[in-house]
């Protein structure tokens, strides 16, 4: 990748979903364009139904735009087939979900080991890295616990750890505090800020909360599928 290449380049992206009756359609995204530099933290702010999650899925290659292009670390996603997209997600992208989405049958350590193993590092070889991260996450005592034995905040910390453990270039967080109480949400935000402070990783934070967007370097506001503001002061 050429130095200075943006971590993300989104150009004139459109996405349309058919309505329930199959005859009419719902325009979810209309001509969205923006770039995100490497190491930057960007918040995508908007109301429910504004198209934030759809945009996040397009950035991760989970969904494809009807028009326009998305480039991740200089790679145009349109040209990538499903296997290449999978490899891109496996190596370059980390996900943090609103509902944590931990694998219920794996322990905390094993959940963190999952991306490592998919990238060819066995659990045993990855253990030192896992332990170090668990310490940063404040979960060193919960290493062998299973998701259903953890509180919501703890689960989200594991989810953050899982998104960061293989050091992806891009981390996508979808409402990371959306399912937590205010106090726990704040703790998670602090943790995110602290973790990303010392890294060269790009973070895209989808949220409807101004508080959450406050930790971002830049805020992009989506309204009815259009980018209406790209500045903190214009944020919704």
């Amino acid at each position: 990748m050429v130095p200075g290449t943006p971590a993300l380049r989104v150009h004139d992206v459109h996405k349309v979903y058919p309505e329930g009756d199959g005859k009419s359609e719902h325009r979810v995204l209309e001509g969205v364009s923006f770039d995100v530099a490497q190491g930057e933290c960007v918040a995508l702010l908007g109301r429910s139904g504004s198209g934030k999650s759809t945009l996040l899925n397009l950035l991760a290659g989970i969904d494809r735009p009807d028009q326009g292009s998305v480039e991740v670390m200089g790679q145009p996603l349109r040209r990538l087939g499903e296997p290449a997209l999978t490899l891109l997600r496996r190596r370059q992208i980390g996900f943090i979900y609103q509902f944590f989405n931990l694998i219920p049958t794996l322990s905390v350590t094993e959940n963190l080991a999952l991306p490592l193993e998919l990238n060819g590092t066995t659990l045993r070889r990855g253990l030192p890295r896992i332990h170090a991260l668990l310490e940063q996450l404040g979960l060193e005592r919960r290493a062998e616990a299973f998701p259903d034995q953890l509180s919501g905040g703890e689960q989200q910390r594991v989810a953050i750890g899982r998104a960061l453990i293989h050091e992806p270039a891009l981390v996508l967080a979808d409402e990371p505090t959306g399912n937590l109480d205010v106090e726990t949400g704040e703790q998670i935000l602090e943790l995110l800020s602290a973790l990303f402070a010392g890294r060269r990783q790009t973070l895209i934070l989808v949220t409807h909360s101004l508080t959450v967007s406050a930790i971002a370097d830049r805020v992009l506001t989506l309204e009815h599928g259009r980018l209406v503001a790209a500045d903190r002061s214009l944020a919704w």
């Binding site: 991760a60 997600r89 496996r90 996900f95 694998i103 219920p104 999952l114 991306p115 998919l118 899982r162």
Partner: peptide
Amino acid sequence: EHAVLRATGMTP
């Protein structure tokens, strides 16, 4: 759960 695994990088 399967979707999460796929999103994490597990191939089909």
